[in-house]
Simulated scan of single mutants.
Amino acid sequence: MAKFTWHTRAVPGGLPVRQVYGFLFAPDGRVLIRVDGAKHSLPGGRPEPGESAYVDILRRETYEEVTLDIAEPHYLGYQCVDDGHSPYAQVRMVAEISRVHPPEPDPDNGRTYLRLLVHPGKAGDLLNWGETGHQQAAAAANAAIAVLGLPHEGLPDAGYL
């Protein structure tokens, strides 16, 4: 069974990055959850050959999966996945949604995902990533306030974009 640990420092050299995902916030302070049937996740994915800049990976994946533009992403940290063979990193970033486009199918799989906005305090439960997921969601909520300057009180109810 894989072991997951959350870190807020830079990804160590030599630890491959296999995913870049973003906690994307609406200007009203709610965070976007990508919905695929009963599965909840964040927008993001794997680097393509030749891609190494986390910002570029997140921007591309965000547009492909949920057809949104984002303002400048900020690094949050990484989740180390140790499967007993080859540990790797899953980078997490935070950004504000700057433009919403009509939903389109993901070019990788043809699915069109729903875009759910929720209170940041509910993200950890919806993602169902265990304790490290709650740690990541808390770090994202703190960054939304401190770095992005977004509201944290009086947030609207959940709703789809």
Rank of each mutant, 00 (worst) to 15 (best):
T5H: 05
T5D: 11
W6N: 02
W6T: 02
H7F: 07
H7L: 05
T8I: 13
T8G: 12
T8Q: 08
T8A: 15
T8N: 12
R9L: 13
A10G: 12
A10Y: 12
A10P: 12
A10S: 14
V11N: 14
V11H: 13
V11P: 07
P12C: 11
P12M: 06
P12G: 07
P12F: 07
G13Q: 06
G13W: 06
G14Y: 10
G14I: 08
L15S: 05
L15D: 05
L15I: 13
P16D: 11
V17R: 14
V17W: 10
V17P: 10
R18G: 07
Q19V: 03
Q19C: 08
Q19H: 13
V20S: 07
Y21K: 14
Y21A: 08
Y21D: 09
Y21T: 09
G22A: 09
G22E: 04
F23M: 09
L24P: 04
L24I: 06
L24K: 03
L24C: 10
F25P: 00
F25M: 00
F25R: 01
F25L: 00
A26W: 03
A26M: 02
A26V: 01
P27N: 09
P27V: 04
P27T: 11
D28N: 07
D28K: 09
G29F: 01
R30C: 05
R30L: 06
V31D: 01
V31I: 14
V31R: 02
L32G: 01
I33G: 00
I33W: 02
R34E: 02
R34G: 01
R34M: 04
R34C: 01
R34Y: 00
V35Y: 01
V35W: 00
D36G: 11
D36N: 10
D36T: 03
A38N: 13
A38T: 11
K39P: 02
K39W: 04
K39T: 07
H40I: 01
S41N: 09
S41E: 08
P43C: 06
P43V: 04
P43G: 06
P43S: 08
G45Q: 11
G45R: 12
R46H: 12
R46W: 12
P47G: 07
P47C: 13
P47E: 04
E48K: 15
E48G: 11
E48A: 10
E48N: 10
P49V: 10
G50C: 15
G50A: 15
G50S: 14
G50K: 15
E51L: 08
E51W: 06
E51F: 09
S52Q: 15
S52H: 11
A53C: 15
Y54A: 14
Y54R: 14
V55E: 10
V55D: 11
V55F: 15
D56K: 15
D56L: 15
I57S: 00
I57M: 03
I57D: 01
L58H: 02
L58C: 02
L58E: 00
L58F: 08
L58Q: 01
R59S: 10
R59C: 14
R60W: 07
E61T: 07
E61N: 04
E61M: 12
E61W: 03
E61P: 02
E61Y: 07
E61I: 03
T62G: 05
T62C: 12
T62M: 03
T62L: 05
T62F: 02
T62N: 04
T62A: 14
